[in-house]
Every structure is written in structure tokens, then in C-alpha cells.
């Protein structure tokens, strides 16, 4: 038996959520952990995955795999799963990981559970706990098949950082034209930004920020905390901020350790995207704003006065 972990790269760096997936794979205690890295990164970063619990890293730097095409990735993951004789595949829930894993599950005849929040219970079968109803409930489900695929939600496990270097080896794979029916023509991406789905701290602004020209207040606070920036739906609908920052029922679901909501009323559709956060701070000038009911800490006040003071206080702490 062994465990395979599907690793995702972002601008040549291993995504934080993939490090969690490796730690999870290690904590399963089901044999050797192999991390599969598709795309281009440097060798040092791959050996470094040993620290999180991977004994072995298999990679392919085939230029055709530089971009995440669902069919092609699924075909590679399924081949490598068999090659390393794995019984479990672990991945981090993401817009690429989900459809790739779903495809692989059919190829392999495996049980698939995504949005998993804890290590499995294996005393009586193999039972995992999934987050459902957009963070409002959990389901414990038994994975019936011998082959299992587990997609973990952010913070399903705390990172382990004490392993030795991993061995690194290039893997030979067969790719067919069938796998490349989808062609990526171009990409539009903010560079150097902290990725919202990955971020441990998120600072989000709503309509209370009045306009895009005031977003430097949100960005300065985010920078002082090493946080990503998010927003409510009306803010992205009005094009004050790009769509990929929109958090909520119809946007991204985030699960940071700290979520700071500024000038957001706290409509239930917004809460649906943030209710898995560990700690929520709300800053709103209206003491009756519903968000306070979902918050751990709150300040009633004008964002234009409170936020700059908060940024200064954080800077003072970190200096």
C-alpha cells in the first residue's frame, strides 16, 4: 500500500494547500507517500516536500502539462496511481483538483470524497467527515471501494514540518491527443498576489467602502497582515474588484484562520462563503449589521477612520 498526493503549482511554487495534502497523506499512516508534481519548478522545492511527509517526489516537466488541462492531468494521475501501487490519492480541493479527481475516480473505480475536514476514522470501515450545505453541516461517509480518493478542505490538518528530504525522480507517462481536446489560448492573472483560496488571513471589503478608489485602505491592512483581499458580490458586480475576489454562496468559499470583513452587512449568502473561517472580525458603522452575529470580534465604527488605525496598530506590533 502507498499514498499518492496530487500537488498543484502556482507560478512555480507548490501551493500551500498541496503541502497540507502531503501532511494529510503522511498522517494517514498507510505507507510510503509519493507526491506527484506536474509542471515546472526547481528540484530544491521538490526535495523540500520531504519536510511535509513525502518520501518520494515524481514529476513531469513535459511542457504540455504546464497548464492544468483536466483530461490530461487525470490521465497522468491515474497512470501514476497504478505505477506506485497506491491505495489512496489525496488532493486539496480546488477548481482544478475537483474535476481532475472526479475523472480519475471513474478511471480507477475508486470511492471519492471531497471537502473532507479531518483524518479518517478507520476502526470500523473507512469513514471521512465532509463539509456539506456550504459549511452549514457535516456528513460522515464510508468510502466503500478499495481505492480511495480524498479531497481535503483547507485546515483539515495542521502542517507537519520535520521530515527529511524526499527523493526526486522524473516519471514517464503516455499522453495521447485525446487528452488535449481543450486548448488554452491565453491567461490573465494578477502577479505577486496572495491567492485568496490559499490565504491564511483574508481582508474583505463590501459596499460600505463606497468605491474602488478607497480600496487602498483594504490593501494596506491586508499587506500589514500578509493577507489576501476579498470582497462581497455587489462589489465585484460593479467591477470595483475582479470577480475572483468575490466571496460567498455564488463566489469563492474561503476557510482562513482570520477573516476581517469591512463594510459588509453579512447577508446569509455572503456568510455561506466564510462560515468555515476560524476567527471572524467585523468592522461596520451599523451596530445592527447581521454580520456581528457571526463574528468573534467586532468594532462599530466608520471604516474610513478605524481601518487606517488598525493598519498602524498591526504594523506597530510586527515591527
Amino acid at each position: 500500500m502507498s499514498v499518492l498526493v496530487f500537488v498543484e503549482l502556482a507560478a512555480g511554487e507548490v501551493k500551500g494547500s498541496s503541502l497540507e495534502a502531503i501532511s494529510y497523506g503522511h498522517a494517514l499512516g498507510l505507507g510510503e507517500v509519493t507526491a506527484l508534481v506536474l509542471g515546472i519548478t526547481d528540484e530544491r522545492k521538490m526535495t523540500g516536500l520531504g519536510k511535509y511527509g513525502a518520501q518520494k517526489v515524481l514529476y513531469s516537466d513535459d511542457p504540455k502539462l504546464e497548464k492544468g488541462i483536466i483530461q490530461a492531468y487525470a490521465s497522468v494521475v491515474a497512470q501514476v496511481f497504478d505505477k506506485v501501487n497506491a491505495s489512496v490519492l489525496v488532493f486539496a480541493k480546488s477548481s482544478l483538483g475537483d474535476p481532475v479527481a472526479a475523472n480519475v475516480s471513474v478511471k480507477l473505480g475508486a470511492s471519492l470524497a471531497s471537502n473532507v475536514v479531518e483524518l479518517p476514522e478507520t476502526r470500523n470501515g473507512f469513514v471521512v467527515k465532509r463539509s456539506i450545505y456550504t459549511g452549514k453541516a457535516f456528513a460522515e461517509v464510508e468510502m466503500q471501494e478499495d481505492k480511495k480518493i480524498i479531497g481535503i478542505k483547507k485546515n483539515a490538518i495542521s502542517l507537519k514540518e520535520d521530515g527529511a528530504d524526499a527523493s526526486v525522480e522524473k516519471v514517464e507517462i503516455d499522453l495521447s491527443d485525446e487528452d488535449f481536446q481543450v486548448q488554452i489560448t491565453s491567461e490573465e492573472k494578477a502577479s505577486g498576489e496572495i491567492l485568496l483560496p490559499e490565504a491564511d488571513v483574508v481582508v474583505s471589503g463590501g459596499r460600505g467602502m463606497k468605491g474602488p478608489e478607497n480600496w487602498h485602505l483594504i490593501e494596506d491592512l491586508a499587506k500589514s497582515l500578509g493577507a489576501a483581499t476579498g470582497c462581497s458580490k455587489p462589489v465585484s458586480d460593479m467591477d470595483w474588484r475582479p470577480h475572483h475576489e468575490h466571496v460567498g454562496q455564488t463566489g469563492l468559499k474561503v476557510a482562513p484562520s482570520l477573516y476581517i470583513a469591512i463594510g459588509i452587512s453579512g447577508a446569509i449568502q455572503h456568510l455561506a462563503g466564510v462560515n468555515s473561517s476560524k476567527v471572524i472580525v467585523v468592522i461596520n458603522k451599523d451596530a445592527e449589521a447581521p454580520f456581528f452575529k457571526a463574528a468573534d470580534y467586532g468594532i462599530v465604527g466608520d471604516a474610513f477612520e478605524v481601518v487606517p488605525k488598525l493598519t498602524e496598530a498591526i504594523k506597530a506590533l510586527t515591527n
Binding site: 453541516a137 457535516f138 461517509v141 466503500q144 462560515n275
Partner: peptide, 18 residues
């Protein structure tokens, strides 16, 4: 390929500290 054992709800949120 998976079967439900049981559902549960998250713990209630504590009081907000103002």
C-alpha cells in the same frame, strides 16, 4: 461508491466580543 453514516451540525458560535 460512498455511503452515509450520519450527519452533524457545527458547534454554535460563541458571543461576539465588541
Amino acid at each position: 461508491r460512498i455511503s452515509l453514516k450520519k450527519f452533524s451540525l457545527p458547534p454554535e458560535k460563541g458571543e461576539v466580543k465588541m
